[in-house]
Amino acid sequence: MTLGDTIYKWIDERFKLRELLQPIIKHPAPENVISNPLYCLGGTAFLCFLILVITGIFLAMYYKPTPLEAYKSVEHIMTEVPMGSLIRSLHHWAANTMIAAVMLHMIRIYFMGAYKKPRELNWVVGIFLLLTTTTFGFSGYLLPWDQLAFWATKIGTGIAGSIPVVGGYISLILLGGNDIGAETLTRFFAIHVMILPIAIAVLLGLHFLMVRIQGISGRL
């Protein structure tokens, strides 16, 4: 018996691993879902999410969310930290690819009619995932604190602020004051690394759970 078998048996005796894993392993997936590359888009978005989590944790080790330090710390990541430039560029490209993949995934679901009964609620969760993903992008855009980040956020929050009724509150909550400043940067940082990750983890959990319960709509 190899070491792997011994460890597996030890855990299996205590936690009934076999009974837990068997239904997952044997769960049938429709054949055309496996052969058609259009069904990869959701998985691609999820891979990008995982890459974003890992590279994001590394970036958070060096990033400093204050107006005086933010730009310098990103510059430090890009020029001095070993592999820093690669990690930040990966974060950048994975973010853009994730949004593209999420959108294409949604377009595929729409044209294949995969949102129909009984999957209505999973579509709704999906729209909230799209919203969360784009909000991730919006909040992350400000963090390098360069000219483009600052002015694009100024216009973006201005647009959000002119939505009737709720706009004023949204703008106040986002900016933490009347204009972009130190408060805004720490808020965007907190939103980007604390609030949104929790939100997306919950939504992804629901999304996958529903797919697991209802199965993939395997129709071409």
């Binding site: 730009y71 560029s89 990966l90 600052f150 694009a152």
Partner: peptide, 30 residues
């Protein structure tokens, strides 16, 4: 993604300056 990140690294422009509006301001493509 690795190839993209190595060939086209993420950009970093001049530091933010609230008194100097740059000419083309564009948001993320989405």
């Amino acid at each position: 993604l690795l190839i993209l990140a190595s060939v086209y690294p993420a950009s970093l422009l001049k530091p933010a300056d609230p008194f100097d509006t740059p000419s083309p301001i564009y948001p993320e493509w989405y």
